[in-house]
Measured scan of single mutants.
Amino acid sequence: MPVRRGHVAPQNTFLDTIIRKFEGQSRKFIIANARVENCAVIYCNDGFCELCGYSRAEVMQRPCTCDFLHGPRTQRRAAAQIAQALLGAEERKVEIAFYRKDGSCFLCLVDVVPVKNEDGAVIMFILNFEVVMEKDMVGSPAHDTNHRGPPTSWLAPGRAKTFRLKLPALLALTARESSVRSGGAGGAGAPGAVVVDVDLTPAAPSSESLALDEVTAMDNHVAGLGPAEERRALVGPGSPPRSAPGQLPSPRAHSLNPDASGSSCSLARTRSRESCASVRRASSADDIEAMRAGVLPPPPRHASTGAMHPLRSGLLNSTSDSDLVRYRTISKIPQITLNFVDLKGDPFLASPTSDREIIAPKIKERTHNVTEKVTQVLSLGADVLPEYKLQAPRIHRWTILHYSPFKAVWDWLILLLVIYTAVFTPYSAAFLLKETEEGPPATECGYACQPLAVVDLIVDIMFIVDILINFRTTYVNANEEVVSHPGRIAVHYFKGWFLIDMVAAIPFDLLI
């Protein structure tokens, strides 16, 4: 008679799926529990143990900040960024110097990925580790590398530091407007667009060049630039800015003055950032001319202004700041037409079709709590990747769950009947059967004279019903998954307890 339990259901295979997918890609990662103190490590794979030199037993239950890997060259700011990422709910990448158990130093890129439950609360953290440099290539500990984003994938490793954006290309926007319009339909740009040429040739750093990471940081200074100062900065030398009595002219307006920039070969870094931020506020060169004239017309309804409409929906549905990093990277690809469009465009503009998908598509409701890094690593669709929660398995109709209350009560009843059979069957065979043979035949009273025979008949009927119930009862397979398919249940029961239950259900007393 089957006594099969499996009270692990309803099970959740999400954690096993993450481990299996990460292991298949030869990654070095740990999984931490966000619900406990210090976000203790609950799993670390073999790749991480080989990377740091510690065994799994030495890593388990330690804080996922990996303070046991810190050393003299470990930056405090990087460690603080990892700790801050564990307090938030967004994906974050941090470069930090770690030390192995043998004392060797290596520069590592740590990717902190939160995993949320159905309520939107962070319950786990996945920390992925990628070695960037070994100890002989690690720089000085005073050099802070965590304020910069990861290198873009479309640049060669040897040319990542030679990417320079020439400031004269930004200063000569109005001069290039006529050349853009003359391109017409034969050019790649839309009317009114501004073409910015980027020099990728390796050259020595000069005062006129600005690194790509500095251009990325310009967006942080746009908020500090007032509207009046932006307007004066875009007017140009024809209309000098008016300053109040006793007030000095704005240095932001002076930063885009061609006369002032041409007199000296070098520009201050602050002026460069502010000038680029001011130019980015204009949607095209037409807006710059309109600002000089004193009238700013409404933005025209053409394809170039609607190019950012799908980007707005993608940004609203993005799951991490990696989408913004990807957008900034692609927006700086050289030799393309940049349409400086305000994100607050007309909502009635139709979304044009684009061959290049900048932001990841909208994630469906079932995966809105899973970050983009987890979705990318697992390579699963929205119909396959579940949320991290207890999910009731989908069972067929008329199927009994093996952990249901009805099955528990039924098993206790069958257990009592088995005990009765084990006690009274030998007793009936030894004593009652002998008395029946010696006594007179009682054929007239039937079952009324033999109450134990009636009980034995009921017990046999219950055993037959138990066999039928076992054909529709779920079970737990070797992978700790609840199986509810009727065919698989029948095959599993035939290979197991079916023969024993059938022999126990045969009414031998009635056959004798």
Rank of each mutant, 00 (worst) to 15 (best):
R4L: 14
R4E: 13
H7I: 08
H7Y: 06
V8Y: 13
A9E: 12
P10W: 15
P10N: 12
T13M: 14
I19C: 04
R20I: 01
Q25M: 07
I30T: 01
N33C: 05
N33S: 10
V36P: 06
N38M: 06
A40D: 10
N45Q: 01
G47M: 06
L51E: 07
R56T: 01
V59Y: 01
R62T: 13
D67S: 09
L69P: 01
L69R: 01
G71Q: 01
T74N: 01
Q75I: 01
Q75F: 01
A80C: 15
I82Q: 01
G88C: 11
E90A: 14
V94C: 14
Y99T: 02
R100Q: 01
F106L: 01
K116N: 14
M124E: 01
F129R: 01
E130Q: 15
V131I: 15
V131G: 11
V132T: 11
E134W: 05
V138M: 03
N146P: 06
G149L: 11
T152P: 11
S153L: 06
L165G: 15
L167E: 15
S179H: 10
A185P: 13
G186V: 09
G187E: 15
A188G: 06
A190S: 05
V198R: 02
E208Q: 09
S209Y: 15
A211V: 13
A211M: 15
A217N: 06
N220W: 06
V222S: 13
A223H: 14
A228T: 13
G236N: 03
P240E: 12
S243T: 13
S243I: 01
S243H: 15
G246E: 15
P251H: 15
L256Q: 06
P258R: 11
P258W: 05
D259S: 08
R271W: 15
A277H: 12
G294H: 14
P299M: 08
M308N: 05
S313H: 12
G314K: 09
N317E: 14
S318T: 14
D323E: 14
L324T: 12
T329L: 08
I330A: 11
I330D: 05
Q335C: 04
F340M: 15
L343V: 09
G345C: 05
P347Y: 08
F348P: 12
P352V: 12
T353D: 13
D355E: 10
A360R: 11
P361S: 14
Q376R: 05
G381H: 15
